[in-house]
Each structure stands twice: as structure tokens, then as C-alpha cells.
Design a protein around this nucleic acid. Structure first.
Lengths: 364, 364
DNA sequence: GGTTAGCACTTGATCAAAAAGAGTGCTAAA
DNA sequence: TTTAGCACTCTTTTTGATCAAGTGCTAACC
């Protein structure tokens, strides 16, 4: 990933970095004079102007209007994100916050992701997002039925992903616990491990014949199974801290705000984006929710959470394009690392072995 | 509820109603001249001005500044909501939309509420909210344990509210299916039907002694049970269609927007509000989320969903104070009626009897 | 050749004053 | 009791002038 932005002299890099950071801090175009405050840069404003003009020609900077300072272009931010970031040292307090908040909800991955996105939002002051990606081959490995009363039972389904889902089913005729026991064995022997596409009519008919007199139970249960498989396959985007967005002037524009909120609620755009993203690195996308409109000053940063080589979720943040990337990247890496460790921990307990060194790898 | 606003001549009522409706439609203060467009009002602008001056004195109207038109005060809206609304006839399309969207997610009440709030948002063009109220005495009636592998099992808990929750538990030592069977009977005999406050040390110690060698399993399970009870007791506010808010000028003010979003995310204020609300009628609260700040131009309308005399949830909408109450009230009543019917339906199946006539009652 | 100081030029932002518009309250007549 | 008319008030919009920031360019400098 390094080397993509060659052809930049050290001084240009320094200036570009200073501009990005100043713009992140102030939110306004930065001019040549104000850059002289920076200790690192030892030349006059005129020289800086020359360099800035060149950087603009190269596409790293943009000038909103002729007498304004410069603003980093998308390419400029990309450069900053890709190669200039010094690893951000998180404060002890922040690390503690991460640990504390995550531990309390160690159970459902959905909840962990949401909690993590909430932490991310708190730490960075941007809007946090938690993504459960779309899948396409959910399977249920194990069915169990709990008999509640003569006209009600609960189907417990343990998915291959180790999610557990339940559906309660009401029957019209009365049944006994024997029947539900039989039903569960029929389910396990016929459709355990199948995806929703693989459950076809012959299988269902076979189940009905195996159920004999209680064949009428098969149809509602199959319906519940279908729904569950679809729920498991469905992606989901949740978020926290939308009010954070409001503090940034770039979201004063109602259209921008509307686009972002629309993308969050619409889910699809974001899910597509995330599934297209790199599963190893932190992803930075300009124009939140794929809304690469002409003047979309927002950005979305997210990172996949990988377990056994498969993406099981993602967390990220949405904020103005000029965001504090150092902080955001550090936060997301720390959080995803934490979650990966948690998942690894489970693995360890299951295998009775050592933690398998599932560290978060990050490209530079 | 009628009779609260006596002392208003018919003409005053007419004028007040016209003002409220004009203000809802236009969003701006309405003046005496523009009211003359209204066919129902047959007098000159001067007369209207006189009436308006009186209505203002009586507290029904407010004048933002001396040369502006009038705006309904809270009392004015209250009057409108309480007594002027002609029952809004929903279009066939809207009714179909309600039926269709609700049926697809008949399973978890949470999901039904969220779906309903989404429908409400779509139909009214305001932000929909779904509330699962706080409870304080969740009990688990039934424990069931599913053995997954030597170091993992799943606790399935059937709550008194017929919610079903699961927690998966990893053990350090290996156990057999016999152990989990024993564990479930220990759970059922010791803590079934107890609230979290009633589970005390003696009970836990008794369970540990009953578990004998596997006493170490009790602690993680009890922790999971506690968590589950807390989850069941916890209220929750979810929402849909926040982007709807942005189209109304009253939410251009960033503070208002921030307050509303904060209230939604904060949850507590709204949960308090809803639990304090009337469980029979539609509730109208000015100043969303209890934020009755000086100039809070927003309103929240919600209605409880009652099952067996107990509030099991609520749905509502949040929008500008000048909202189309006729539409909102009709929508909420129709939706809550639909949901109540669904819940009644289940009841019917359970009892094997007739639907019990659980119609939504609405005060006038 | 690269660097710097100086200056003319461009352009958005700011502010005050003026003009426009909307709506009222009051008075007098019907 | 209702209505027409008019003076008055207050906000909004427009306009124009001034300001400040920042650039690009040229010429001098090391």
C-alpha cells in the first residue's frame, strides 16, 4: 500500500499532512500563513504557496474558491490515511472503557457489535455503526423442541454460525410431548445442515409422511425454519450516536444529513459497501453509504471482524470527511482486536488449547 | 374529555380549527386574510381579527411577534386533538399496507412493534417509534438446556411473558448430557417463577449442593439468568424514519434536532413518559422526549398496546408540533388495533375458542 | 535553482441602511 | 355586531460598501 503516492518530496508530504491535520482540527480551508505556525515546516509562506499550488495540480488539494485556503481532496485524505498516520496511542481511560463496555454483553454477537459501535461512537465523537453482513448459506445444525402446553411448542434452532434462534408455534390440535420429540428427530434427520434452497418439496413430503398423523405440524414448522434461515441470512445495520453528526458543520446541509440517515435506514447500500470491502484492513470510503454525490463531505470508516477466515461482522463510524483518522483507525483496530480476542477465547475454551494468536493484522 | 373547552362560540371553534389546519399545512403563522379563503368562515378579515384577539387572550393562540399571524398554542392543539378531529378515513391502500407489513413478522413482539412503527412512519411521514416498556418483575417459568458439545450448552428460558431467550454457556470442564438434564431440573425446581430479587444466596447455595460435583456450573448459569431477567425487564425504544424529521422546518434548528435524537438514543425519558401515559387513549405530548424546553416545537403521539389488561408495548410517532393529528391518530389506532387483534388471535388458538372481542377502545 | 519579500488582485463575509411585505389594532361608519 | 380603511409595527429581503483572507506573480536574494 505504500508507494502509491510516490513523487512527493518529503516537504510536500509534511505540508500535506499539516494541511490535513489543520483542516481536521479547524474544519476550514487552511492558508499558507497559518501553516507557518507548524514547527515542523521551516520555510516562508511564499514557498508553502508554491508547494500548495503544485500539490493542487497533482490532485491532492482543492481550492473552494480563488481566495480561500486549500482543502484536502479525496486523494489527499487517502494519502493521509494510507501512509502518514502515526499509530495513535490510546489513553488508559479509553482502553478501560472499551474493555468494560464490551465485557458486559458477551453473549450475542449482534449485541457485541452494537455495544462496540457505541463505544466507537463515544470515543471518537462520530456516529458508530454495527454491521451484521448478509450471508447466503445459513444452515441449522440442530433442532430442539420444547413442549410448552398441548397447543404450543417452541422450536430452538442452533445455526452453523452458532447463533441460536427460537420460534414459538401454536397448533390447532392438541399434541403431546411425545409428538414434539418425534418432530425434533424428524427435523434433525431431514433438514439439519441444509440451506433454505436445499429444502425442497420431496424432503418436506418425506417429513410429512414420517410424521404420520401429525403431518399437519410440518408446514408451520417449515415456515418457521424458512423465516429463521432468512433472518440469519439477512444483513443488518444498526447505529448509535447520530446526534454526534449534528455538531459538525458539514452536516448542516439538510441534504447531506438526509442522505446519511437514508443510507443508514436503507441498509442495502451500506451492506453492499461493507461486503465489497477489504476484510483485513481498515476501509475508508468517502461519501457515506456509497452516496458519492457531487458534494458529499462525509466518510465512512469500518473494519471487518474475522473469525476462522470468515467475516462475521463489522464495526465502523460515519463522520465528516475531515475526521480524526488517527483516532478513528486506532479505535476501530483496538475494538475489532478486542472482539476477535473474545471470539478466539471461545475458540480456546472449545479446543481446550492455547489462544491461536488471532491478532489483527493491519497494512501500512 | 369533551366539555373541557367550553366557552367557545361555534365561530371561534371554526376559526381555531381553521387556524390549526392551515398551520399544519403551511407551517407558518396564519393571518386573518388568508383565513378568508376558507369556505366555512363567512365574515370579514376584521371580524376574524377580533375573534383571533379573543382566542389569543383565552390562551388558544400565540403571536410570535406583533406583526405576524397567529400560531396555535399548546392549549390550541390540545383542543384540536381532543375534540375537533373528524375521524379520518384511511384509504384502502393504507389499510392494505398495514395488513401486509404486519403479517410478515408475526413472531416476536419486538419485531412486530418495530414493523408497526415503520408502517406508522411511512403512512404519516413522521418518525415512528416502537417502545417495549420497562417491567419490574420478569420471571422465567421454564428452563430447558440443550447440550451442544462437552464444553458448551445452551440455556433456553421461557419467560412468564412468553418471551423466549437463550444464552450459550461455555464450560471449562467437560460435561455430559446427563449433567445438563440434571442442571435443568435443578433450575426448574429452584428458581422457576422467581424475579431477580428473589434469587438469593441460600437458593444458589442449595442449587450448588444439589449439583454436587458440578456445582461450578451454577455460577455461570445464574449469571446468565440474571442477565436475561434484566434484559426482560429493560425497556427499549427503537425508531424508524428519522430522515422524515428533516423535511420539517421546525427541525432546522440544530438544538431541537439534537434534543430529539438525544431523547431517542437516551431512551429513559421516553420510557418514563410512556409508562406514565394513559393506557387506553392515544397520548399526545408536546415537546418530544419530555424535553419541554422553552421553544420545543415537537410533539410525540403514542398509544399503548394492551394485552390482558397489561401494557405490553407502545407505538407512536414523533414530529413537529403542528402535525396532521387526524392522520396520526387514525394510523396509530388502526395499527394498535391490528396488533391487539393479532395478540387476540393467538389467545383464540390457545383457548380453542372464539376471539374474545379485544377491540381497541378509544375515548372521544 | 531554489527561496523569499512584497504587492496587486480576487472573492466570500460582514454590516448597516433602506425597501418591501405581511399582518395587526383601532376607529368610524354601516 | 360587522366591516372597511388606514396608520403602525415588526420581520425579511435587498443592496451596497467595506473588510479580511489568501492567492499568484514578479523581482530580488542566497
Amino acid at each position: 500500500m505504500a508507494g502509491k503516492h510516490q513523487g512527493l518530496s518529503e516537504r510536500k508530504k509534511l505540508i500535506l499532512k499539516a494541511i490535513v491535520e489543520a483542516h481536521i482540527a479547524e474544519g476550514e480551508p487552511v492558508g499558507s500563513k497559518s501553516l507557518m505556525a507548524n514547527q515542523q515546516i521551516v520555510c516562508s509562506s511564499a514557498t508553502i504557496r508554491n508547494e500548495m499550488a503544485e500539490l493542487e495540480e497533482m490532485g491532492y488539494l482543492v481550492q473552494p474558491h480563488t481566495s480561500a485556503g486549500r482543502v484536502p481532496s479525496e486523494l489527499g485524505y487517502r494519502f493521509y490515511v494510507d501512509s502518514l498516520i502515526e499509530h495513535y496511542a490510546m489513553t488508559a481511560h479509553e482502553i478501560k472503557e472499551i474493555g468494560g463496555l464490551l465485557q458486559s454483553k458477551m453473549h450475542e454477537l449482534d449485541e457485541v457489535l452494537l455495544a462496540a459501535s457505541r463505544v466507537a461512537s463515544n470515543l471518537t465523537n462520530y456516529t458508530g455503526i454495527a454491521i451484521k453482513p448478509r450471508a447466503s448459506a445459513a444452515r441449522i445444525n440442530r433442532f430442539e423442541i420444547i413442549y410448552i402446553r398441548p397447543t404450543e411448542f417452541i422450536v430452538v434452532m442452533v445455526a452453523a454460525s452458532s447463533d441460536v434462534k427460537t420460534k414459538s408455534i401454536h397448533t390447532e390440535t392438541e399434541i403431546t410431548a411425545d409428538v414434539t420429540a418425534h418432530l425434533s428427530s424428524v427435523l434433525n434427520s431431514n433438514i439439519a445442515g441444509l440451506t433454505s434452497h436445499q429444502i425442497n418439496l420431496p424432503i418436506i413430503m418425506n417429513m410429512e409422511s414420517e410424521m404420520g398423523q401429525q403431518a399437519n405440524l410440518v408446514s408451520p414448522v417449515i415456515k418457521a425454519v424458512y423465516e429463521t434461515l432468512n433472518e440469519l441470512d439477512d444483513g443488518e445495520v444498526r447505529w448509535s450516536g447520530i446526534d454526534q453528526l449534528l455538531q459538525y458543520p458539514e452536516f448542516e446541509d439538510r441534504d447531506t444529513l438526509k442522505h446519511v440517515l437514508g443510507a443508514l435506514e436503507g441498509q442495502d447500500a451500506i451492506l453492499d459497501l461493507v461486503s465489497a470491502g477489504d476484510s483485513q484492513d481498515v476501509n475508508v470510503v468517502f461519501g457515506a453509504g456509497g452516496m458519492t454525490g457531487p458534494m458529499n463531505n462525509s466518510a465512512m470508516v469500518y473494519k471487518h471482524i474475522v473469525k476462522d477466515g470468515k467475516t462475521v461482522g463489522a464495526i465502523g463510524i460515519i463522520g465528516p470527511r475531515r475526521m480524526d483518522y488517527a483516532k478513528v483507525l486506532a479505535t476501530l483496530e483496538s475494538l475489532t482486536g478486542n472482539i476477535a480476542d473474545m471470539l478466539g477465547e471461545e475458540q480456546k475454551l472449545l479446543n481446550g488449547g492455547q489462544p491461536d494468536g488471532t491478532d489483527t493484522k493491519t497494512g501500512g
